[in-house]
């Protein structure tokens, strides 16, 4: 019966849209009914937990349990029937190609935020007071609407060796040079992959930084100029410090993107020519290599690498909340 229901997708959709809120409302009514009957002394302490219970359950099932299961799996062998201690981690740190992936991720983590925040800030500041600001910002923002995979496909054509197809090589040959195999030339190919990410994310950084820029009061800047500061000094001494929290938020977000990067590498080189990254390695180990244990170990390493960044992000957020 349940199968038949699922087969009728429209019916299933309606059931989900209607039934899920109904169940939640029913749950809340039930909780209140229970609390009315509960001893008066307990009710205030119990209420938040009962209200939170559905959310905590979802969090537990879909986030906490998989995380713990992945950590456990990372200490197990290929088939998952025996514990092998730290073997999977030892493997990760002893292979040539995993270390290259690690190196490339470091490159991504350094270069992507640097270029994205730098270019985003540059554009935000430069177009801040010009007439065609919204046009420029729209154009730079546009790539953000494209998925990483689609962007990677587009850039595969851009980097194509045949100058009749590849825009980059069309430019190079028009200038009299020989076509360059952009995705093969090491170590520069990593930079060319990162540039795809930059192309995508600069718009994101620009929009947020531009909003931050607009939030700086004009009187402050005016006062600095009256005191004789030139534009560069205004930017360095006033704008930059005031923008620092925003820059930090954008940078940490981009760093997380860089750590998780997968689509661009998978689509453009699949890690060939020394361009592999950790997330693609994780995919390859699981889906190509059939090594769930190693794949889980890589996932845990990636998780551990992201935790400090998340921590900084949350700290920043708390500080800002405290200021308000």
């Amino acid at each position: 019966m349940f199968d038949a229901l699922l087969d009728n997708k429209l019916l299933a959709a309606i059931v989900v849209i209607v039934a899920v809120p109904l169940v939640l409302i029913g749950y809340i009514l039930l909780v209140e009914a229970v609390l009315r009957r509960a001893p008066r002394r307990w009710a205030p302490g119990l209420r938040p937990w009962l209200w939170l219970a559905p959310a905590l359950t979802f969090l537990g099932v879909f986030l906490v349990y998989p995380t713990i299961a992945t950590i456990i799996r990372s200490f197990q062998n290929r088939r998952g029937n025996d514990f092998v201690g730290l073997d999977n981690y030892a493997w990760f740190f002893s292979q040539n190609d995993t270390l290259i992936a690690l190196r490339n991720n470091v490159l991504w983590v350094i270069l992507l935020p640097l270029l994205v925040v730098g270019l985003g800030l540059l554009v935000a500041v430069l177009v801040d007071r010009v007439r065609y600001e919204s046009t420029v910002k729209s154009i730079i923002f546009l790539p953000l609407a494209i998925s990483f995979v689609a962007a990677a496909v587009i850039w595969r054509f851009m980097y194509e060796l045949d100058p009749n197809i590849g825009t980059m090589n069309a430019i190079v040959t028009a200038a009299g040079g020989d076509p360059v195999a952009w995705l093969i030339e090491q170590p520069w190919n990593n930079l060319f992959l990162i540039l795809v990410g930059v192309w995508l994310l600069t718009g994101f950084a620009m929009v947020i930084l531009s909003a931050g820029l607009k939030g700086i009061s004009a009187e402050l800047l005016e006062a600095a100029r009256v005191d004789g500061a030139n534009e560069l000094q205004v930017f360095r001494r006033i704008v930059l410090p005031l923008l620092a929290p925003t820059i930090a938020v954008v940078a940490t977000t981009v760093i997380i993107y860089a750590l998780k990067t997968f689509d661009v590498v998978y689509t453009m080189t699949n890690g060939n020519f020394d361009t592999n990254v950790i997330a693609n390695l994780m995919y390859q180990e699981l889906f190509v290599g059939g090594q769930p244990g190693r794949s889980a170990a890589i996932a845990v390493i990636l998780f551990l690498a992201i935790v400090p960044v998340m921590y900084v992000n949350i700290q920043r957020f708390r500080q800002q909340e405290a200021i308000r």
């Binding site: 093969i184 890690g271 060939n272 020519f273 390859q284 190509v288 290599g289 059939g290 090594q291």
Partner: peptide, 18 residues
């Protein structure tokens, strides 16, 4: 061959040509 080895064989061709 095992799929991991088969994939490594593909990559090896690319590396060898390079």
């Amino acid at each position: 061959m095992p799929s991991a080895l088969s994939a490594a064989f593909f990559d090896a061709i690319v590396s060898y040509v390079d």
